[in-house]
Each structure stands twice: as structure tokens, then as C-alpha cells.
């Protein structure tokens, strides 16, 4: 029991996941064992695929598509309480529509202007990198929590 509490505390402390949402998901395991885990497994698969797609569309500079991919992943991440990932995805969604929602500035390429699609590609790359980072960290914590590689 105390081991469970430790696990809970650890995940909670990581700050990667909104606890109220997560505990609600875990509560669903009561009548279906492994439900929450399967949910996260679905999510992991989805993220992997979507990241790949984002990479491909960064290559082809398809902003519109990037935006919709951002929106797609944003929804799933938010549903699971993975707020930081969701926030990065929202950035991708906005940048894809050429909306600089957080007035983000490119440090290493100050010459790139908003008129240039490459500007938005760079911004999306930044958001994607952060989303990847958050995803990996969340995944590690969740692996520990579920005591299994998800």
C-alpha cells in the first residue's frame, strides 16, 4: 500500500501529469484491469506515429498539415492530463496557422521573418523538440508507475 503511495507521490511530484485527471483514469481500472495502462499504450503509439508524421511534414513544409497534427495530438494529450505535451502541441497547431501564440522569438535565426514559411517551420521544430522531451520524460515516469514498458 505504502509502495503504491510512493508511486503515486513520485508521479505526482514529476509535475508532468495533471493529477486529478490521472487519478480519474486509474479509478477506471476498478472494473477493467489495465484500462489506464492500455490507454497510455494507445497514446504512446499515437505519439510515435504522429511525431513521425510531423517530421515528414516539416520536411515538406506543409504547415496546414502540421497544424492539424498538432491539434490531433493536443486532444489526446489533454485527455490524459499530459498538459505540457498538450501545450507544445497547441503551439504546433498555432504555428501551423502562422499564429505566433506565445510571441516566440528565434534566437539563432533573428533574420527569419514571419512572411517566410521557414520561420514557422523553425518554431514548430522548437515546439516539437520540447514535446518530444516532455513525452520521453512522461513515458519514463509512467513506465515506473505501471512497472512496465509502455
Amino acid at each position: 500500500m505504502s509502495e503504491d503511495e510512493d508511486k503515486n507521490q513520485r508521479l505526482q511530484d514529476s509535475g508532468l501529469i495533471e493529477w486529478s485527471v490521472f487519478s480519474e483514469l486509474v479509478a477506471m481500472d476498478e472494473d477493467e484491469e489495465g484500462f489506464s495502462k492500455s490507454l497510455f499504450q494507445t497514446f504512446v503509439e499515437q505519439v510515435k506515429e504522429t511525431f513521425q508524421e510531423i517530421d515528414a511534414n516539416l520536411e515538406s513544409k506543409n504547415l496546414e498539415k502540421l497544424s492539424s497534427l498538432g491539434h490531433y495530438l493536443k486532444g489526446s494529450a489533454a485527455a490524459l492530463g499530459l498538459e505540457s505535451i498538450s501545450a507544445q502541441c497547441e503551439r504546433i497547431q498555432n504555428y501551423g496557422k502562422k499564429i505566433n501564440c506565445d510571441k516566440f522569438k528565434l534566437k539563432d535565426e533573428p533574420d527569419l521573418k514571419e512572411e517566410d514559411d521557414d520561420f514557422w517551420i523553425k518554431l514548430i521544430e522548437d515546439a516539437l523538440e520540447k514535446a518530444r522531451d516532455d513525452f520521453e520524460r512522461s513515458r519514463e515516469e509512467l513506465n515506473i508507475y505501471f512497472e512496465e514498458e509502455i
Binding site: 484500462f35 495502462k37 492500455s38 494507445t42 499515437q46 506515429e49 513521425q52 508524421e53 497534427l69 490531433y72
Partner: peptide, 15 residues
């Protein structure tokens, strides 16, 4: 075509 590959995903958890 709007969302190509993601869409084929079948939930691993038997969904």
C-alpha cells in the same frame, strides 16, 4: 486524406 497514417492506428489495448 486529411489524416493519413495516424488514422490507421488500432488501439493496442484491443480497442
Amino acid at each position: 486524406q486529411v489524416a493519413p497514417s495516424t488514422s490507421n492506428t488500432t488501439g493496442p489495448g484491443g480497442s
